Amino acid sequence: MRKKWLLATLGLAAVVGGVAYTQRDPIAMALITRAADTAMTRNVMADLPADQLHVGFCGTGSPLPSRDRAAACTVVIAGGRLFVFDMGEGSGETLSLMGMPLDKVQGVWLTHLHSDHFEGLGPFTLQRWAGASAKTPLTVSGPEGVTEITQGLNAAYRIDSTYRIAHHGESVVSPSGFGMAGTAIQPGTVYDANNVRITAFAVDHDPIKPAFGYRVAFKGKSVTITGDTAFTPKLAAAAKGTDLLVSEMLSPRIVDILARSAQKAGMTNRAKIFKDIENYHISPEEAADVAKSAGVGMLAFTHIVPSVPKALQFVLLGKAADRYDGPIAVMQDGDVISISGPHEFKTRNLLK
């Protein structure tokens, strides 16, 4: 009896499998249609409470190649609006994959003018222009020199823009919305509207001058973003009492391994670069000192130098946990930290 039942089951499975195989095209198209409908109607903002401050990580990498991390980009969501800090290579695509509505972007603020912090601006600006039917250029604020960069990128993409206008029509891609408009800023308040205040402060990233960090405050909650910086006591002053400190991070002991390996391989130039970058980036232990001194609620690391497999990420932190007893996290692309109150954090990933 058992053998007959098994044979009947196998026969039914074969029939079902055969039908599925012969109908694989319509089944696949049905699955694709469902996925497209879901993607087009996805509303991430509905899942992010408007009275909370949210910090998204659209690029947690560095100039060193990584399959898992786009270059530098952090987005702050406050009151249903998006404020983007840095726009490295691939980060605009990550921002879109996270489901962030590009029409809610209020602007991009650059921490400094290293290329890994702005080279994603061109593709992102095109996405915003066409995908969000922008009617005005993207506002890009940053240190002196930002206007030269935005004008150069506008020139580089100008020919492409004429093709898109000719193909889709001005009602879809308005000529007035093409490109970006650069604005040079100084330390101090650089945005103050809709209950959101953004303050820029100088950081030590010599010889890159000026270089900024930013503090964003919204309805009693705040996040401080260091940008690229060496350790300086001024960081703690800028981050004093902030809920979340988003710090870059370089692991000296792992970078030393890379330098030695490059030297052994005869790559003397690369070995020197690995040694040079240590003096203008902050270590995890130094960032932990800043977090403790500033009394922050949580320390989140981004701009990871170097990237390592996720299973080995604990080695990046060194002895940071011995220097700061609050929560510490190495962020991944797609992560969002929601701040609902003092020491009240929720982390989710929008790419999973």
Rank of each mutant, 00 (worst) to 15 (best):
M298Y: 13
D192H: 08
V290W: 08
S161W: 04
G188E: 12
P233W: 08
R164T: 15
T199S: 13
A230P: 07
Y214P: 06
E285R: 02
V255Y: 09
D256W: 01
I257M: 08
P210W: 06
D289R: 06
F231C: 01
D289E: 11
L258T: 00
K292D: 14
N269I: 12
A291I: 03
A238C: 03
T268G: 01
S293M: 07
F178I: 11
F231E: 06
G297D: 05
V246T: 04
P284T: 04
T232A: 15
K219P: 00
I185R: 01
G169F: 08
P210R: 04
S247R: 01
S176D: 15
P233M: 07
S161I: 09
V246D: 05
A202F: 00
F301S: 11
D192R: 13
G177S: 11
T268F: 03
V255C: 08
T189P: 01
A259F: 00
F201E: 06
A262L: 09
T226C: 07
K275I: 04
T229K: 00
E278S: 02
K264V: 12
P210S: 10
I185V: 14
T162K: 14
A211L: 08
G266F: 08
M180P: 12
S251A: 11
E278F: 00
V290D: 10
Q186R: 09
F301K: 05
T226D: 03
E286K: 13
